[in-house]
Computed example of a mutant assay.
Amino acid sequence: MSTLIWPPIAPDELLQKQEDNIARELEWLLEALQDTLQSLKDGLQECADLLAPQDPGSTLVLSSLRSEQLKGYITRVGTRIMKGEISLRLPSIPVPRGQTAFRLAISNLPAASTLFLEQLATTRTLINACLDVVDATRWTGDRKNADFISGQMMLLHDNIQEARGALRGWTADQKAWHEDPVPGDAFQPPLPDHISFHLTISEAAILLNVRTLEPAYSTTGTNTPLSFVSSSSGQHSYTGFSLRDRLSAVLGGGRQVFHDEAHEVFQYKGQEVRVREKVRVESQDPSLMAAYAKLGALERNIAVARRALGVVMGKGLDDVEDG
């Protein structure tokens, strides 16, 4: 099957008509992309509103699965954890007399350090940058310049991908728990040196890991465990392990540990430590989940728009994906 043009058109004239047709298609598409940009802005603003600091914030329940090891709650306002109480029941943490669990409470003192979710701050920064890009593209740039619009769409796509990646978690620039310890004075009473409290975001959920720590080399030539030295007071504070645990270690019947970091050594607050016990709790945050889903939809929409523009501009799919 063949297609013929009648009356016949000279090759030069046919080429010119094809170029004119592509130019009209490109002009129409660039105009249509203005509506796409407005739609993107509306979606980005919804995401920004979901992550904005608004009282009373999001109160999330924390509970270990099928155990009483960790129970409590935290309240997130924007990128900060403003309130919270955690009860721990771990063999390596002694329970104060008269209480049923070891209690951690986030301090509300004016001078206390604030628990800060860096990933949320990154996401909010990238979303605000996208909003600025949309405004610059629509109002200050040349809306009829295909190369300019293509470059701006690529920038939007990259920023949205990065913002969504921050909510997904475990990005390359994310610090590990031992590299970014929580300030002890964020709690009242202060967090003991042998307890690590680490909050992150994973798949748009709040992920809390509480670890109890011990020195990596637990003896000094005798049967006495090495002590942690408080960076604030300089005083020794033994890790809080019970006499039963110490006797068990002396007699060669050390308590078995069952977690993925049991045999690793970490540099934590200037000391080499091992993780004695570890409890992991995940709590779904509805606002983060909604923002994560919206960013995914925006990412797909802008990818479709970039491919359409690339085709009309004569770019291959590889060229569009590579920028």
Score class of each variant (00 low, 15 high):
110 P>H: 06
111 A>H: 12
111 A>N: 10
112 A>D: 07
112 A>K: 09
113 S>H: 15
113 S>Q: 04
114 T>I: 10
114 T>P: 03
114 T>L: 14
115 L>R: 05
115 L>K: 02
116 F>T: 07
116 F>V: 06
116 F>R: 14
116 F>Y: 11
116 F>C: 07
117 L>C: 13
117 L>S: 03
117 L>G: 05
119 Q>M: 02
119 Q>D: 07
119 Q>P: 06
120 L>D: 00
120 L>H: 00
121 A>H: 13
121 A>M: 13
121 A>E: 12
121 A>S: 11
122 T>E: 11
122 T>F: 11
123 T>I: 01
123 T>Y: 02
123 T>E: 01
123 T>N: 02
123 T>R: 04
123 T>P: 06
124 R>N: 03
125 T>G: 02
125 T>L: 14
125 T>M: 10
126 L>H: 02
126 L>P: 05
127 I>N: 00
127 I>W: 04
128 N>K: 14
130 C>V: 03
130 C>T: 05
131 L>I: 09
131 L>G: 03
132 D>N: 08
133 V>Y: 07
133 V>S: 07
134 V>P: 05
134 V>Q: 07
135 D>S: 14
136 A>N: 14
138 R>A: 01
138 R>W: 00
139 W>F: 13
140 T>S: 15
140 T>V: 08
140 T>R: 09
140 T>N: 11
140 T>A: 12
140 T>W: 14
141 G>D: 14
141 G>E: 09
142 D>Y: 06
142 D>F: 11
143 R>N: 15
143 R>D: 05
143 R>Y: 08
144 K>G: 11
144 K>L: 15
145 N>G: 03
146 A>W: 03
146 A>C: 10
146 A>E: 09
146 A>F: 12
147 D>I: 13
147 D>F: 08
148 F>D: 09
149 I>V: 12
149 I>N: 03
149 I>C: 04
150 S>V: 01
150 S>D: 10
